[in-house]
Design a protein around this nucleic acid. Structure first.
Lengths: 190, 190, 190, 190
DNA sequence: CATGAATGAGGATTCATTCAT
DNA sequence: GATGAATGAATCCTCATTCAT
């Protein structure tokens, strides 16, 4: 029970951070606002995260992990490379649309913050399987022979953009999602 | 010292800001570091930019303007849509590689800072011609019928990524630049 | 240090403010001087008062409250209007002589600072009883029919002046106090 | 002509200072606002007044001088002490009502600023004649034997208060002016 | 004399972090 | 572990004053 309470607080702080980071940007969000939002005392935050930088890194990692797991889920069941890629793409985009705060914060941190090397590495792990699949397909000649990390980054960016467009125009969600995939697919196959 | 080197100082501060923003991120760069780097007194910065926010906006606008002009230069001389697109792509990527600080800062601000609406609008103006060309080509059936702002954003993101890769691997500059264009072109045409 | 000497610190800051305000004027007293005088850290002041303006308002209110209570104390026991007025006058003047800093600061703020409307209103409350007594006496024809707020302001100003004179000449304290009252009484009755 | 221009600027700065001091208080009026209001360059102000403190002292002195002269004007023609006092009172109050800015600034500076001793002394000179008349009357037994500086200060304060009331209620100007005098007269005579 | 850009000390306020309870 | 008052370094910005033109 005591343990549960602790876990709750850790989670509460993380969630609060995501929510206020999304609203104000991590760099001008006071830790006190995070603790207030989480319903804990100012000092408590520092029992769970040594520094604010620690918290930022942790937030990033947590989001990445969630997204990674979600993306992998059901991936193995897909047969063709096209279906696999479609699966990855759809989960990514859908998750971004459903979790606007996490999505925003993930990219905000990713593009404007110098993450710990360890965290950066850990964040990648969830995506190794996808890289592996890509390599395999390249070997089979199914997709063009581009560096797999370049391909990974490309999917990422394309998704960011697509989600942003959908958010401004929810009605067109499916349309934008399909366009995005089409471009991607056409771009990488021959 | 009345009439002095006014224009110089404005420029000096702007350049200093770009350089230190690139190194530390705009949100934790003290204005005092900017003025020191620019070789002016702390207070002087505020003679040229009312607030730090003003400076950030101005930095963004200035960079966008430079890039816009550069991209347009020579564009009209190109005949086919493919050549035009190639021209835009190459100048963008080359500029990004040659101006790493400006490139970094532009995207850092663009993705993590809420710009003034006026600045946002002004920043677009340099890119209207490109949008116009895209529309024209879509009408002619040369490229697929995707929203032009979506296409614009895509080129932007693809370029960001490409520049980042090239910077980590200067030797492969041309290769990455070509791959990027190929993906783009294949993605957008049929 | 959680629960610590909270009340003490609030009081310490308030007292320090009064003391340094009296010496330098509230408008060119740095908050840092106040905190130093109070024996707390610079930042601590802002835990108790949101802004310097807040502190100024609070200082004013606190002084007014103290004076108001002091004036009321024993007032009801006096029978005639003359005795009541004499009581008010004496306490006011005596308090001013005994508390030169509070007296100075109260009038400095009162005459050169735009107080919060709320504070202004709150500051009045302690003096309503006096106004009531004045009204009553006017009704009974004991004192002339002048607006009561005008009468109130008059007593105030007369007291300020009297206290200033006494402070420059402590030996004549009683004499000035009596003269002041005499003028007042003669001015207001027929 | 050159001379005239200079005089104009001196006057312009002084007037500008009075106007903005009245609006914001002298202690948070930047000298740059004064020069802008006066229509001169920032630096020009310091050609006429060595420091801001100098300017404040000068402003005070100028106002006092004007009021002193105005009060004296026509005073000698009055016969009785009552008429003389009435004259002084009326001119003072009327001037205060007609010149709200000067009036405000004069008392703001007088009550919240440490004036140069020289200026303080110079400011008194215009009022010596009034003090002399008071002494004379006391000697003749026409008014009570109170210290003349005390009497002077009293008139001053009473006037401040009266003017403030009139300003909030212009319609009652004459009424308040008369009440004020009545109280004063009753207070000082027997 | 007039100008106004340049200066930099000073000042209010914020906020990550600590630590006694 | 939880708390939240205390801290003080750090930061943005202001403004009186100077001085080269």
């Amino acid at each position: 029970m005591a343990r549960a309470k602790v876990e709750n607080k850790y989670k509460a702080i993380l969630d609060a951070a995501i929510s206020v980071f999304a609203a104000h940007g991590f760099w001008d969000t006071p830790t006190s606002l995070i603790s207030k939002t989480a319903g804990v005392a100012d000092g408590t935050l520092f029992n769970y995260f040594k520094t604010k930088d620690d918290l930022i890194n942790e937030v990033y990692l947590e989001i990445k992990k969630e997204l990674g797991e979600r993306t992998l889920d059901g991936l193995a069941a897909k047969d063709s490379i096209r279906e696999k890629m479609r699966h990855v793409w759809n989960t990514y985009v859908d998750w971004g649309v459903e979790n606007p705060d996490k999505f925003t914060v993930m990219h905000q941190i990713g593009s404007s913050y110098t993450l710990d090397e360890k965290v950066k590495a850990a964040a990648e792990t969830g995506y190794l399987e996808i890289q592996r699949i890509a390599s395999e397909s390249i070997a089979k000649g199914e997709i063009r022979d581009y560096p797999t990390d370049y391909l990974g980054a490309m999917i990422d960016m394309q998704a960011v953009m697509t989600v942003q467009f959908i958010r401004q125009n929810r009605a067109q969600a499916t349309k934008y999602r399909d366009i995005g995939f089409e471009i991607l697919w056409n771009g990488v196959t021959r």
